[in-house]
Design a protein around this nucleic acid. Structure first.
Lengths: 149, 149
DNA sequence: TTAAATAAGACTAAAATAGTCCTAATTAGC
DNA sequence: GCTAATTAGGACTATTTTAGTCTTATTTAA
């Protein structure tokens, strides 16, 4: 389905909650109860976002997590790659080794072009954009049905 | 990893083979031996591409599969949605029902914007583009590392 | 009538993902 | 120092998805 994992989906919910109060540190417990996502899951996601430089953390009593930057400087691309690894549609976009399609596969380079387009799209959207009021969903739903006409 | 399935990857290999001889009908056996992909797998992919209007099929002796249109009119988006369903990054982009994040999720609409951008990127690339000689891979690899700086 | 081919879908096995839990390390406050 | 609160790290299990195979039915040319 070309879809990202639930963890990434949760991550955007968590980050949009945190973006409402940029400076403060939030504990995992606080975030779990505010978002309704199970605590161990919240904790796992928060831990993944720290090495990716999306969040910063402080240990110990009065510790917690905070955004590493302002919401307009945190891109969706950064969040996705933190949770799912490099953004690349095909295996051979990451590494050219081990591709067994000896003949008939002169395609890799062109996948790269597509990957780049998607990368650009994801980098152009920031957390600040995500927390803006949503547009009417009807206007922006993808007309998938049209593909089958 | 925001990546598409192997089936879709195989599909592009199969279609690029077929695009070299647009008019002819190819049997599943012929395609399997030409591409090196296992026959049952080739067969499965070909069958998925027929209802999606990417291929047409003829049964019986002298039957086979052929492209439903010229390569420049078959988009990557059509191939992906044939094999993986609607192009939508998050569950709630497909259906707004059953989203349990009652509070804190004013995000759906904005995912739609991202989905649309990706959709556009995938629709703008056709099978004809894919079979052009690939550019040097080094030039187009996604600079993932830069996300972590 | 027979042989060659697709159609449909059930089924199995493998892999990825989600989610939970436990133990260690760190820090503020008493 | 001691204790409580909190993150860090990683092991582990269960679930779901995906890949791949197989069988039977249908269609058509010769």
């Amino acid at each position: 389905m070309l879809r990202l994992s639930k963890l990434t989906d949760y991550a955007t919910v968590i980050l949009s909650f945190m973006a409402k109060d940029t400076t403060a540190f939030h504990t995992a417990i606080e975030i779990a109860s505010a978002t309704g996502i199970a605590l161990p899951t919240v904790s796992k996601i928060l831990k993944l976002l720290v090495p990716a430089r999306v969040l910063v953390s402080t240990r110990g009593a009065k510790g917690g997590y905070a955004l590493a930057d302002t919401p307009d400087r945190i891109t969706v691309a950064a969040v996705i790659s933190a949770l799912e690894g490099p953004i690349a549609l095909t295996e051979c976009s990451i590494s050219h080794q081990g591709c067994e399609q000896a003949s008939g596969c002169g395609i890799r380079g062109n996948w790269g072009v597509i990957n780049q387009a998607i990368q650009d799209a994801l980098e152009s959207v920031t957390l600040a954009d995500m927390i803006k009021p949503a547009m009417a969903p009807e206007e922006i739903l993808i007309p998938v049905a049209s593909l089958y006409r």
